[in-house]
Every structure is written in C-alpha cells, then in structure tokens.
Design a binder for these strands. Sequence first.
DNA 1: TGCTGTGAAACCGTTCACAGCT
DNA 2: AGCTGTGAACGGTTTCACAGCA
Lengths: 216, 216
Amino acid sequence: MKRPEPRTEPVPEATSHRLSLLLRSLRSLEAAGVRTASSYEIAARFSLNSAQIRKDLAQFGEFGVRGVGYRVADLKAHLKDLMGLGVTHAIGIAGAGKLGQALADSPNFNAEGFRVAALFDVDGRKVGGCSRTGVPIRDVQALDGLVKKLGIDIGILAIPEAGAVPLAQRMAGAGVRAILNFAPVTVPALPGVLVKNLDLTFFLENLSFQLAIAKA
Amino acid sequence: MKRPEPRTEPVPEATSHRLSLLLRSLRSLEAAGVRTASSYEIAARFSLNSAQIRKDLAQFGEFGVRGVGYRVADLKAHLKDLMGLGVTHAIGIAGAGKLGQALADSPNFNAEGFRVAALFDVDGRKVGGCSRTGVPIRDVQALDGLVKKLGIDIGILAIPEAGAVPLAQRMAGAGVRAILNFAPVTVPALPGVLVKNLDLTFFLENLSFQLAIAKA
DNA sequence: TGCTGTGAAACCGTTCACAGCT
DNA sequence: AGCTGTGAACGGTTTCACAGCA
C-alpha cells in the first residue's frame, strides 16, 4: 500500500464531509460484523457514486484490495488517522449559554478524537460551575492560560455576534489552531488559524429559499 | 426590471449561502445609511468576486441600475421576497434539550421570516413548561395536531440519533415541508419534504482533517 | 471473475472581459 | 464615464469506462 506525497492544499469541504460520512458508515458496518465491503456496497448505503468513494480515498493512498474491496477495520483505522482523529483534540467553548452547554455535553463533541476541556463565560454566576456532564465553566479572563495548560487546539464560539471577532482574535493569540464560529458574523481568516463560520440561520434561510422556489 | 422564468431546479447551496451573506450585508449597509452600492463595493465587504454577486442575482431577475449600482433598500426587499422571507415560517423543534432550547430562544431563529412556534419532547416533566423566551414545550404525541394548528412548515430535529428517522417521517406525515436534522444520522429524502442533514461533528472533523494535513 | 485505481469525458461553478444601458 | 448583465474561458469536481491486479 503506497501513499502519495503529503498534501498541502486544503481538502475540499465536500470531500471532507463525504469522508466523515464514510467513517460513520464504517463504524456501523464494523458494529454489524461486516469484515469487508466494496465501494459499490458502501456507495449504496448513502446515495453516492462508487467511483467517487474510490477517488476520494485514492487522493490519500491505496486502501483497497482489488477483486475484494476494502477491509472495514483497516480502512476505518486509516481514515481516522488520516483525518487527524488518532490524537484527541482538546476543545474550548466560549459561551456557557444553552448552545455552548449543549455542545459541551453532546456525545458528538466528546467522541473519538475530541474532548471538550472547558467552557468559558463572562457571567460570574456561571464561572466555577460545570455543565451537566462535568465540563468546568471558567472565566474568559483565564482563557489564555487555560488554552496552554489544557492543550486546547480547537476553539468554538457560541456567543452573541458582538463579541465574536475579538474573542476569535484572543483565542488565536492564545494558541488555538482552529475556530468554529456559530455567531452570525463572518470571522475573518486569522494568520495560522483555520476559521470556519457556521451561521445556522443560513441553513434555515436555505430551506426557506428552496421552498419559495418550489412553490413558484 | 424583468424576471426570468420561475426556477424549478434547486438553488445550489453555495449560491444560497452567498445570498444569505448578501442579505446580512445589505442590512448592515442600510443601518449605516448607505442608499446605493455597487457590486464592487459589496464584493469588497466579504471577500468575493463582484461578477459572482451579479451572476447570483442575475439568475433571479435584474435588480441593479447600470452606471449606478444597486439601491440597498430595493435589493434587500427583493432578496427577502426571493428567499421566501416575506412570509413568516413557523418552526417546530423536536427535542427540548439544551440544543433545542438554544435554537428556540436564539434571535437568529426568530428573526425576519422565522418564528419558533413550539418545542416537542417526550419527557413529561418538560411538557407543559416553556423555554426562557416563552416557547411552549408540548408532548410529541400532540405533534400532528399542532403542526396543522400552528401552521408549522419547518421542523427541526434536535434529538438523539435513534429517534431521528421515525420522527422525521412523522413530521412529514403531519405536513411539514422542510426538515433540518441535527442528529448524527442521514435522514433520507422524504416525498415532498426538503431534508437537510446537518451533523455538527462533520465540521469539527473537517477542522481536524485540515489541521492534520497542514501538519504533514 | 470481481474489484480497485485512474485516465478521459461530462458537468458545474467561478472568473474574465466586454457589450450595452443610464 | 460607470456600472450592470452576460457570453466565453477557465478550473475544479463528478461520473464514466476500462486497464490492471488479486
């Protein structure tokens, strides 16, 4: 099994999402006791083209066995490694409101590869407490120190619009390497830090838009 | 100002997101007292190509004035109309946990074009209560009746994985026209209902992936 | 034989560059 | 002159179709 040159260009978001889906699918195949699966079988699971699965994987190496398919356990292990889920990322969430706590307690954010290390808030009444599953709520003042101490490499912004950009900058300064922003502002790219803006309103508006068009 | 044929094909998600961004930008321009803006000026606000803005809009009509640009108030009104935000969509959220309540109380989900009409839960202790901003929590049993009574046309799934698909089907049966699913399962397309699966884990995994590649 | 991995073709979205209106 | 609206060029992604290996 050979590997191509290590990539430097970012992976297209569509590819990344398909690989996440693939990983999820492999987990369920493994749980079902399936040892080996062809790209055709996998493609049937979610509605995808089998060639696309092969192409997606081929960018990163040769993971299959001709005439046989893919060994589920092997491919899953390779994928996890590839996606950087072999090591556990420590997450810091700014904003201990409902959204922040929902994310902090979510099994999805404490799954393979991720662990929510702390919540941060400005509200003195919340600071010192912890979320339902025990994620401590700290004062934003302590952010810089705790990012380093806890090894937080991913920051999440679950705060109102106004504070988002400065807080993103603060996180970047503290050494966070990636930021997921839920506030309805576009946080600009920061040097050396990956920023993903994720305004949930846009998805709602998208639905509204599609409905409006279908109606017409 | 002429309009092209009404569209039937779905709008690409990228276009839809850009138009959401454009709408947001127009609101801030209007708030700043700007009356008219060229595609070049608007493009500079977010980092886009001016031609793309013109092309995006051109699919739906002619909204600009040659030699002048776009009248901010006019374009905003047209965009809102186009995106189906002229009428208010009633939203029903399944799952009155932290995420469900966060969304129910979010100003973004109660903005122009949207209003959260009800939360639904199976937990008898929650039923009968309401969220911080007063969205009533109802028993899932009552879903079918309330969808019709409250005119709910958009359903949101903020529940664990297991119940998501059946509940989506139930919502579809009750007459919901679009579903936004936050549970980590792919809810398949249902006849006559728009389904958008939005697994937040995928965005985290995407960040992890990009970090892993950058490191290599 | 049956599957992967992959060049070639088709498709789609973005960018360029300019005609045409005000 | 200045800007929109748009045909044409470009670049990237998806699909096809098959060579090549187990």
